[in-house]
């Protein structure tokens, strides 16, 4: 049982590390602000979700689990707010993203 939880923790940590490293590479590599927001969202959702799941596997049922879930839920609810505020402000300041534009924009 102990080995099983350790293996599961290792798997989750591996996926989380992959997620944040690819997100950070995307933050460097992608061409403009609106594309970089996707990479930042990947760090916020994927990285946090996998790392919190892995640490929950390691902690068992105690007060620590509640605190970890609190961190996860908080980042889960605030990540779209910061992404949307950044994107909205960039659009308000008159930046137009690269690429195709389909239909009439607001």
């Amino acid at each position: 049982m102990d080995l099983f939880t350790d293996l599961l923790t290792g798997l989750f940590f591996f996926l989380g590390s992959l997620s944040i490293i690819i997100g950070a590479c995307g933050l460097i590599k992608l061409p403009d602000v609106f594309s970089r927001i996707h990479a930042a969202g990947m760090i916020d959702t994927g990285g946090t979700a996998f790392f919190v799941l892995g640490m929950i596997m390691q902690s068992g049922w105690s007060l620590i689990t509640v605190k970890l879930l609190l961190i996860g839920i908080f980042i889960f609810f605030t990540s779209p707010v910061t992404s949307h505020v950044t994107a909205n402000l960039a659009r308000e300041k008159g930046m137009v993203p690269e690429g195709k534009k389909i239909g009439k924009l607001l």
Binding site: L27, A40, I43, G47, I71, T86
Partner: peptide
């Protein structure tokens, strides 16, 4: 906006 976005991501990484 790039910088603000990157600072936010850095904060998330530091929390983890």
């Amino acid at each position: 906006f790039d910088r603000v976005l990157a600072v936010n991501s850095l904060g998330t990484i530091i929390v983890i």
